[in-house]
């Protein structure tokens, strides 16, 4: 198993190291601020409003999980 993995690792080396280098380059070259952040919560919109409530139902779930 470990021998097989080693052999396949070698055959995939070129592409893999390319992407790794590219990924590393991207991470270095791009300031974290450049990376578009995932869309932030917009509490103004109805669909992003909180729905979770710590109802009795949910409390019972938490309690039963402590057993």
């Amino acid at each position: 198993m470990s021998q097989k993995a080693k052999e396949t690792e070698k055959s995939a080396f070129d592409r893999r190291s390319f992407f790794k280098a590219l990924g590393a380059g991207a991470t270095v070259a791009v300031a974290p601020a450049m990376v578009t952040p995932a869309q932030a919560v917009d509490p103004g919109k109805d669909e992003t409003r909180a729905r979770y409530k710590e109802s009795d139902h949910v409390k019972a779930f938490y309690r039963s999980n402590r057993y």
Binding site: Q39, A40, V41, P43, E47, T48, R49, A50, R51
Partner: peptide, 9 residues
């Protein structure tokens, strides 16, 4: 941009 995160994350 079809994703959104709710206030519950």
């Amino acid at each position: 941009d079809c994703f959104y995160t709710t206030a519950d994350a």
